[in-house]
Design a protein around this nucleic acid. Structure first.
Length: 358
DNA sequence: AACCCGGGGGA
DNA sequence: TCCCCAGGGTT
């Protein structure tokens, strides 16, 4: 599948020339230290560049935790707060674990190659190849969603790409195509080609530096590739939570499950011991979580005040957390996005009903 | 190999 | 609505 040496050289030249002209500037491209690159790669796992940049996650993180030591020593609530809204919170925990391994066990010595990076927590095939090539100049190829799409089209690969066999094939191809002279740029370039030119829909083939060698373009199969396996429709669920007020405070619960440990959520009516029909539904909206689509229903007491002496929540004191949403810095612990949304919508409603308060 | 994990933005 | 994004870990 891999082209002969001469074709390969012209391929590399064409893509890198395009990248030198069209390549974007990102903060982690201006500073290619292993730490900067690794932080960016963790944030970009299953997350769009625009999300990471526009909402300031990368900048804030680098300011709060500028190096391995700072991250290694940071309290977990702080790193979760810096990650709040990005999702997949184990990424933040694993990033810190990696920092702790490097700054502690390895005495500040970073892994020197892809195989060593692969040993770090939260670092898989993609991230190991990315940081090894971009930050250390190792000749190894990345495979992400963009690369899969570009390869499937360029080689007119008509098998489903989400299989182990396809993954292995693409990894092998990527490792052979990567330009030894500029491995980091090559990997960035092919991903960026997938992002801006070889897009999922409406690909801009006439702008593509690889159009001459693209098999799918020649066969008119670009729109059909890559072949994806259709996912089952999400399972619908209903979630009923209570917004408990005590003065300016709102009751939250600290999650204890391993993955979401430390995140805040609103308590369920069941946890609160609220009989159905006794509280008033004040809001509802849908949110998606992995394979589920959840209809979140928010309830309040008829009166505006929640009286804990009458209705003390049955869960442990340590799991309770009363938040003051009017606090200037809104300095509460990291909150799951749906519950944060429910809280903010509650505050908006209250402002409309009682504009005199705050 | 299948399943789990968040959240958002574009089409 | 659906898709899928610079994936990784666990079972």
């Amino acid at each position: 599948m891999v082209p002969d040496k001469e074709t390969l050289n012209s391929l590399r030249e064409a893509l890198l020339l395009w990248f030198d002209g069209e390549g974007r500037r990102y903060p982690w491209r201006d500073d290619r230290s292993p730490y900067s690159v690794l932080v960016s790669e963790f944030m970009l796992q299953q997350t769009r560049i625009a999300t990471v940049l526009d909402r300031g996650y990368y900048t804030n993180w680098m300011r709060a935790f500028p190096d391995w030591d700072a991250l290694a020593q940071a309290p977990e609530p702080d790193i979760l707060k810096a990650w709040e809204g990005l999702g997949y919170y184990n990424r933040a925990r694993n990033l810190q674990k990696t920092a702790q391994v490097i700054s502690g066990e390895r005495d500040g010595i970073v892994p020197k190659c892809r195989a060593e990076w692969l040993q770090m927590p939260g670092v898989g095939a993609y991230t190991a190849a990315a940081v090894a090539s971009i930050a250390m100049g190792e000749t190894c190829g990345v495979v992400d969603g963009n690369v899969e799409r570009v390869f499937a089209r360029f080689f007119s690969y008509d098998q489903p790409i989400a299989t182990p066999a396809s993954k292995k094939l693409f990894q092998d191809i990527s490792d052979q195509l990567v330009c030894p002279a500029r491995p980091g740029d090559w990997n960035a370039a092919i991903m960026e080609l997938g992002q801006f030119v070889c897009t999922r829909s409406k690909p801009r083939c006439s702008d593509c530096p690889l159009q001459g060698g693209c098999q799918a373009l020649r066969r008119g199969e670009v729109e059909r590739l890559p072949v994806k396996i259709k996912k089952p429709a999400p399972e619908r669920k209903r979630e009923q939570v209570g917004l408990c007020r005590k003065g300016n405070l709102v009751l939250f619960v600290k999650e204890t499950s391993s993955r979401r440990k430390g995140l805040l959520r609103l308590p369920s009516l069941e946890e609160l011991g609220i009989a159905e029909g006794t509280w008033v539904q004040v809001d509802h909206f849908d949110y998606a979580i992995t394979k589920y689509k959840v209809d979140l229903e928010v309830f309040c007491q008829g009166t505006r005040e929640y009286d804990p002496s009458v209705n003390e929540p049955p869960f442990d004191q340590e799991e309770q957390c009363w938040i003051d949403p009017f606090q200037a810095g809104r300095d509460w612990p990291a909150m799951g996005a749906p519950y944060k949304k429910a809280l903010l919508r509650h505050l908006e409603r209250q402002q409309e009903m009682f504009p005199d308060i705050r």
